[in-house]
Design a protein around this nucleic acid. Structure first.
Lengths: 280, 280
DNA sequence: CGCCACCTTGAAAAATAATTACATTTGACG
DNA sequence: CGTCAAATGTAATTATTTTTCAAGGTGGCG
């Protein structure tokens, strides 16, 4: 655990003098790590052995070891946490918070994603005769983004955000087709129906959704990510960022599986954009 | 800069003995920070002053100070860097790399974004009679996502990924309209034309694009982010994640500006989704 | 209330670690 | 082959940390 947090948490288990040391350190950890035990003792108005005992109480070998731990916890500094935007935040504050929440979300997503599932998903996608990406509402843009990636692979890809089109597409799907359904909650009725429909035609259904959700139950393979809920803002935010990164991962896995020759393809697609651009 | 990287980078500026020290530290930084100068000197098979000189060469006050710096850089663990995917990466490796690159990109984006520009953009958006989000290719999904956010605000919003529709929309735009153009490179001819067209009607044009690009030159306000280029993969990846987060920021700024009463609106929109969902 | 046991604290000594000063080695170059 | 400067090491010095031990509190209990 983070050393600084540990000090704060255990404040009441310390003796009087030790608490003085703790307070000085909490007040200015940067000073603490750059001071000798003598200097710190003086700052806290206690004796040097007291500081040493304080360090040992925090499961360190002594003062230098304690400084090391403290330094690490400062560097680490709980890097990105999901912080909620306050009513009176200025532009700088809410900008930072949103970006940091997105980063925290990606971190959580990365850690909760199962690499085996990713690998199987890539397997399935590389063998697909046709790939469809479906998403509704906020997930529609993720599906569209996936289309933008995968069409470069010279595989038939489609993406709809129209439920009727999705149904029609599923009705004519075959066992060689793969359908990727994107839904944050996994509780959208229409999506569950689509999954069911596709399965009836023996198509493979990959769900980018919450595990143990109704949608997940209908999928051949579930790619789930535990991301912190964006509770107090009434819009899905961070979850989509994670979904989109997952699409990036799948696309990357796809290209890797296809080897060097295939990448020539991508180069050509990129090249084709040139004419639509203004030269430097 | 990260101390460990610094050691690696400056390997050739060290003398023979100092390099021995560097190698021992690189091989096992964890051992290094938990050793005394004597122990480390022995490991590297050099004398103690050599270790000390090595530390000073890296702009530290001495050995203990060096250990502190090293400890911090280890804790930090080169937090998120844009790492390129290798040919022979397994699913675990490329998944981590993609997510970490996205995080590195968000970090860079956050730091390069100008809060004043964000604030002005929010100003402009809150005063708009009509808002349009336009993007082509990879940016189309960002535009669609923006639509999904802003339609909740009870402002007329539109989003096209069809150049002709964009043009028509711009032709009939007025000075109270705001057009948000999303383009990573800022060099897409069609987008530059659109910006020009909109400006002719005195509409306000906000560009989410690269600064000093042809598109940026045509915009009333530019929101630029310096994100690391995704060079060796032939698809835009991280840049879109940053753009999407920026949309989140703008949407958040918008709701904050409108105050509590307005948020009731958002609650209703969220509520309306309920019937399309399966209850827990 | 007072005594004892125990805990807390600090002074000083001892031990450990880091730095400095200086000597020796090494190697480049005339 | 000698000279000089840079690099390295030895040993002494200094700084820093840790230990030991004694003094001062604190609270329990007769």
């Amino acid at each position: 655990m983070n050393t600084l947090e540990k000090i704060t948490k255990n404040l009441d288990t310390f003796s009087k003098s030790e608490r003085k040391v703790a307070e000085v350190i909490i007040a200015s950890p940067q000073t603490a790590i750059h001071s000798s035990i003598a200097a710190l003792a003086k700052l806290a108005d206690v004796s040097e052995p007291t500081v040493n005992r304080f360090c040992r109480r925090l499961d360190t070998k002594g003062f230098p070891d304690f400084k090391l731990h403290l330094a690490q916890s400062l560097a680490n500094g709980t890097p990105y946490v999901n912080r909620h935007v306050d009513e009176d935040d200025g532009p700088e504050a809410y900008t930072s918070k949103i970006f940091e929440s997105s980063m925290a979300c990606l971190e959580a997503a990365k850690n909760s994603l199962d690499p085996h599932a990713v690998n199987r998903a890539v397997d399935i996608l590389t063998q697909a005769k046709k790939i469809s990406f479906f998403g509704l509402g906020a997930s529609a843009s993720v599906a569209q983004d996936a289309l933008n990636k995968f069409f470069r692979f010279n595989v038939p890809v489609s993406s709809f955000n129209d439920v009727v089109m999705m149904r029609m597409s599923c009705i004519v799907s075959t066992e060689d087709d793969v359908i990727v359904l994107i839904s944050h909650t996994g509780r959208t009725k229409a999506m569950v129906d689509i999954a069911n429909l596709a399965r009836q035609n023996d198509s493979t259904v990959i769900g980018i959704t919450k595990k143990e959700s109704p949608l997940a139950a209908e999928c051949s393979l579930v790619l789930s990510m535990d991301v912190p809920e964006d509770t107090d803002v009434y819009m899905p935010m961070a979850s989509r960022i994670a979904q989109m990164s997952l699409i990036d991962v799948l696309a990357t896995g796809f290209t890797l599986r296809r080897g060097e020759k295939f990448r020539e393809n991508l180069r050509k697609v990129k090249q084709s954009l040139k004419d639509s651009r203004i030269e430097k």
